[in-house]
Every structure is written in structure tokens, then in C-alpha cells.
């Protein structure tokens, strides 16, 4: 009995060492595999955000980088800027308009794509094309189509009396914002489509067959089967679209550079202008931090609403 106990203690000891080593080496290897990702995040996301906060406490003329500590006065200045509040308002307008339009159009396209039996592959390719065509190409085509001399949409619009014959629509106080929303939605609606389409295709046909046998109409089938099934995905899509559109810089900048007279100057445009055209790097970083706070609120909603942690342990 005694010898047995000794033996088993020895065995336990040996095991506990290997177990500790084994666990450790497995954990180390696990962390090593994700280390590059962590480094990338640290380098490209965490550091810049920390740096932005730090820089926002200084006055930094970009051309002669001489840092002057000013505390929170950049934030005070931002909150006292009329252009900040107008950019926030325009940004909200751009975000809501784009998100609603993209949701409706994107969902509509997805439903059509899911139901048609002819040319589905072709039409899916068409939809993906809009998603994959680079923003700059979308912008170049738009600029060309709204060209005052020979733009096909310019001519169409002026013939319809929407704008004058010599008016560059994207440079028009009234039209600039709606057109930026429309052009952006041409490209980004498809995001909602693709998001929803995968989910739509995953709904088993037998659900509809069962409903048909019960005599459900198409509208009833959509309301009772399709919609509940894609609701979750739609919510994610709406939230992500809203976050992305609030932070949209490229398409607005390329189309209008925030003009005319600030009519399309959203927060990202204002921050960019402040940094690189008005030479106030510290002030721009204060704006970046404010945008980051908006992002963080969006992220918080995203995590609260969809609890991705649930997916994590699957």
C-alpha cells in the first residue's frame, strides 16, 4: 500500500510538470499564432488612437511640427466651432439618408435576386460588380456623367428642369448632398444585398412549401417566414452601414471635397481639412478622438445588440 502511494505521488508529480508545461506550451503556441494580428492592431489601431488623444492635447502646426501643450483647449475650440456642429448635422443627415436608402434598395435587390430563376448568376455578378468597383471609379464616372459640357446625367437633369444648363449639380448647394447620398448608395446598397442574400438562401425551401400548403399568400410568406429569418442580419447590416457611413471620407471628398461652401462637409471631411489644409494637426486629432468616441458608442451598441461573444465559443 505504502509503495503504491509513493509510486502514484511520483506519477502525479511528473504529470503535473508536463501538464503545466504542456498547457503552457499550447497556450504559448496559441498566442504566437495570433501575435502578428495583435502587432498589426497595436501598430495600426491602438497606437494611433492613443497617439491621437495625446496629440489632441497640443497645438501642432503640421508644417513646422513644434508641439505646444494646450491641455483640453482643442476640445473646447472644437465644441465652440460652428463648422463642427454643422458638420455633425450634415454627417448625421448623410448617415441616415444613406443607411435608409441602402437598406431599402439593398433588401429589394436581395429579394429579387433570391426569387428569380433566370439569369441569377449573371445578376448576382452584376450586384457584386457594384460592390467591387473601386470608389474612385464610381466617382470618376459620376464626375463624367455630371460634367456640365457632356455629362449624360447633367443633361438629363437640366432637361427635367432639376438644375440649370450651366450648373454643375455636384457643386450646387441644394443638390450636392442628395447626389452624394445617391452615388454612395449605388455602390454600397449591394453590401446590404450580399449580407441578406446569404441568409435568404439558407432558408429551407420546405418552410415555403409548408406555408403554401396552408394557403399563405406571397406577402404572408414574406412577413411570416422571410422577414423574421433575416431580421437579425438586417439589423447588423443597418448598424454597420450607419457606422461606416458616419465615418465615410473617400466618396465625399473625391466628389465634392466637402463643398460647395461646406454643403457636404461631414465630420471626417472637416477633420481632414483641419489637419492638412488648415495646418492644425492637434485640433484635427481632437476631432478624430471625438469620432472615435462615436465609433466606440456604435461598437458598444453592436456588442450589446448582437452579443458576438455568443458566437465566440461555438
Amino acid at each position: 500500500m505504502a509503495s503504491e502511494t509513493v509510486e502514484s505521488t511520483a506519477a502525479t508529480d511528473r504529470r503535473s510538470v508536463t501538464e503545466r508545461l504542456g498547457l503552457d506550451s499550447e497556450a504559448i503556441r496559441g498566442w504566437l499564432t495570433v501575435l502578428p494580428v495583435i502587432l498589426l492592431y497595436l501598430f495600426v489601431a491602438v497606437t494611433p488612437i492613443a497617439f491621437a488623444f495625446y496629440a489632441s492635447l497640443f497645438e501642432i502646426p503640421l508644417l513646422a511640427p513644434e508641439w505646444t501643450f494646450t491641455g483640453f483647449s482643442n476640445y473646447v475650440e472644437v465644441l465652440n466651432m460652428g463648422s463642427f456642429w454643422s458638420a455633425l448635422w450634415l454627417g448625421g443627415l448623410f448617415m441616415v439618408g444613406s443607411t435608409v436608402l441602402q437598406l431599402l434598395v439593398g433588401l429589394w435587390i436581395a429579394l429579387v435576386l433570391n426569387k428569380i430563376s433566370y439569369g441569377q448568376r449573371f445578376l448576382t455578378a452584376v450586384a457584386f460588380t457594384a460592390y467591387l468597383v473601386p470608389t474612385v471609379i464610381v466617382v470618376l464616372i459620376a464626375l463624367f456623367m455630371f460634367d456640365v459640357e457632356i455629362g449624360v446625367l447633367h443633361i438629363a437633369g437640366s432637361n427635367l428642369g432639376l438644375w440649370g444648363e450651366r450648373t454643375f449639380a455636384l457643386g450646387d448647394q441644394t443638390w450636392a448632398m442628395p447626389l452624394v447620398v445617391l452615388i454612395g448608395s449605388w455602390k454600397f446598397s449591394i453590401f446590404v444585398t450580399i449580407f441578406t442574400l446569404a441568409q435568404l438562401r439558407a432558408i429551407p425551401e420546405r418552410f415555403y412549401e409548408a406555408a403554401k400548403i396552408c394557403g399563405a399568400s406571397r406577402w404572408e410568406m414574406f412577413r411570416d417566414i422571410t422577414l423574421p429569418r433575416i431580421m437579425g442580419v438586417l439589423l447588423i447590416a443597418v448598424l454597420l452601414r450607419a457606422i461606416f457611413m458616419f465615418n465615410k471620407f473617400d466618396i465625399i471628398w473625391m466628389l465634392t471635397e466637402g463643398g460647395p461652401a461646406g454643403a457636404t462637409t461631414t465630420l471626417p471631411i472637416l477633420a481632414y481639412r483641419t489637419a492638412f489644409l488648415e495646418n492644425s494637426y492637434g485640433l484635427a486629432n481632437a476631432m478624430a478622438v471625438i469620432m472615435f468616441i462615436f465609433l466606440a458608442i456604435g461598437a458598444y451598441c453592436y456588442f450589446r445588440a448582437f452579443n458576438p461573444a455568443k458566437e465566440v465559443d461555438t
Binding site: 492592431y41 495600426v44 489601431a45 497606437t47 494611433p48 488612437i49 497617439f51 491621437a52 496629440a55 511640427p65 454597420l240 457606422i243 461606416f244 465615418n247 471620407f249 473617400d250 471626417p268 477633420a271 481632414y272 489637419a275 494637426y281 484635427a284 486629432n285 478624430a288 469620432m291 472615435f292 465609433l295 466606440a296 456604435g298 461598437a299 453592436y302 456588442f303 458576438p308
Partner: peptide, 18 residues
């Protein structure tokens, strides 16, 4: 997942000096 929230403009501004 937080990475979905990274926006090029928010990161780009500080990255410029870094």
C-alpha cells in the same frame, strides 16, 4: 471584432505623423 469599427479616417490622421 472591434476591428470592424476601425475607420481609415480616424486611424489615418494620427498615423500620418507616426
Amino acid at each position: 471584432l472591434l476591428g470592424y469599427m476601425f475607420s481609415p479616417i480616424v486611424l489615418g490622421l494620427p498615423l500620418y505623423l507616426i
